[in-house]
Amino acid sequence: MLSVVNSATGLVNGFFEWFGNLGIFSWNVLKAGATPPYEWQELIRQLDEVGSKSLPLVAMAGAAIGVVISLEARYSLSRFGAKSMFPATLVYSVLQVMGPIITGLVICGRVGAGIGAELASMKVTEQIDAIEACAINPYRLLAATRILACILMLPLLTLGTDACALLTGWFAQTLVEPLSFHQFIQAGFKGSTFNAFLPQTFKTAVYGLIIGLIACFQGMRTRGGAEGVGRAATNSVVLGSLFVILADVVLVKFILVVFP
């Protein structure tokens, strides 16, 4: 009985400790990142790593999602006799829901795991300590650049996902029932407003923040050998995805309130 209570107390303690450490880590990163000198070279390397190198992956994910939504929507809309609503349905679902969340999850998988594993292996091989010994702030050099890269690149990657999803969605439609791309865009964006487009796209910056922050945090607090590296990578992806989805719940409501 006592052991159960102890273990429960331990779990709760561990939960709050994790958040406490995350808070301290975030503060350290913010403090380091906001003050010069800035690590431009490293930032550019990370932007490239997170952004351009991820583009093929999100493009393919977006393309697949576009085809899936196209097929599903056309089938469902035909059943209700609302096939003329198809372009608007596709545009709406890609821009509002699928594009941001798919990009967030895919990048979380690719970039989150990469950052987590990289920083964890640097930690266990004491490279981070070596950097610190060279009087270089590891938060500024390693964490701030990666987190900033994630924040900056996620919206752009979302735009790539959206574009690919709309293209393949139209393509899948036009194979079955020919429809000009111009007509498709005209009909699809008919009811769209900036409120439906821009906030949904730029909310992915929050996803980027979550992905980068959790991956760096998990990587830089790793203990143990190769096992610790694996755990850090796994935790980065799992916790990152979880928090992205949870953040989406809050963001949806937030955007609806702020941008009616």
Partner: peptide
């Protein structure tokens, strides 16, 4: 490329 997509979206909706 991605900013071009953004611009296209902005202009279509705009």
């Amino acid at each position: 490329a991605t900013l071009a997509i953004l611009a296209a979206g902005v202009f279509i909706i705009g």
